[in-house]
Amino acid sequence: MAAAALPKVVAQFKKIAPLANRVLIKKADPITQTKGGIVIPENTKERIRRGYVVATGPGARGNNGEKIPMSVKPGDEVLLPDYGATKLELGDDEVYYIYRETEILAKINE
């Protein structure tokens, strides 16, 4: 899924608004072929560890009540952990995941 397709996806999720420091993620499509043209068999594919931010919450609150701003925004590509997400299945075989912002490993700048 390219970042250019995100506005269409965001329109579908106007009813879903992550709270606090939660982030709604659409995982990237799995790699099915290497750069050299070798097709990767289905059973040997790695877990998908990259995704795109679709929506974010407003941010967490610190001990003094001040809002801590989010470090990711919709459209960012991120590196994800193997576990820890809440799976959200919506119609049309669309699967999204909700992570806490602190669980996201890195923001990918390409």
Rank of each mutant, 00 (worst) to 15 (best):
P74G: 00
E42K: 07
V53E: 10
V78A: 06
V10E: 14
Y96W: 10
V53T: 09
G65N: 03
E66N: 14
R61D: 01
V23F: 02
A4V: 11
V10Y: 04
I108T: 06
M70R: 05
K8L: 12
A5E: 15
P74A: 00
E101D: 02
T32C: 06
G91Q: 14
A28G: 07
N43L: 03
V53A: 06
L24S: 09
P7I: 07
Y97M: 11
K67I: 14
K15I: 04
N64S: 12
V39Q: 04
K26Y: 09
K87R: 15
A11T: 14
G91A: 12
G62A: 14
G75Y: 00
P41M: 00
V95E: 11
N43Y: 02
K73W: 02
R100P: 04
A55C: 05
G37V: 00
K8W: 09
P18K: 03
K27D: 08
L105T: 08
T32G: 05
R50F: 15
V53D: 07
A60E: 08
N63M: 05
G36C: 04
A28Q: 14
I38R: 13
K73G: 02
P74Y: 01
L80M: 10
V54H: 13
T44R: 00
D82L: 11
G57S: 03
P81R: 06
T34W: 00
T56F: 03
G65H: 01
P7K: 05
A5Y: 11
E89C: 10
V23M: 06
I31H: 02
K73Y: 04
Q33V: 01
A5S: 12
G62T: 11
E46D: 15
T86Q: 15
V78C: 10
D82P: 07
I31K: 14
E89L: 13
D29V: 06
L105Y: 02
K45A: 01
K45N: 03
I25M: 09
Y52H: 12
L88E: 11
V53I: 13
V10T: 12
E46I: 09
R50D: 12
Y96P: 06
G59L: 01
A55I: 03
M1F: 13
A3T: 12
L90E: 12
G59Y: 05
N43K: 07
R22K: 13
I104L: 15
K27C: 07
K15S: 13
L24A: 08
S71D: 06
I48F: 00
L19I: 11
I108H: 06
N43M: 03
K67A: 13
T32N: 10
G57C: 02
A5D: 15
R100Q: 15
M70I: 01
P74E: 02
K35S: 02
G57N: 03
T34Q: 01
K26D: 10
F13P: 09
P18Q: 02
R49E: 14
L24E: 09
V39W: 00
P69M: 03
G62S: 10
R100C: 10
N64P: 00
M70A: 04
P81K: 06
A20F: 04
L88I: 14
V78G: 07
E42A: 10
K73T: 04
N64M: 05
Q33T: 03
N21C: 04
G91S: 14
A106V: 00
A60H: 04
K67V: 15
L79Q: 13
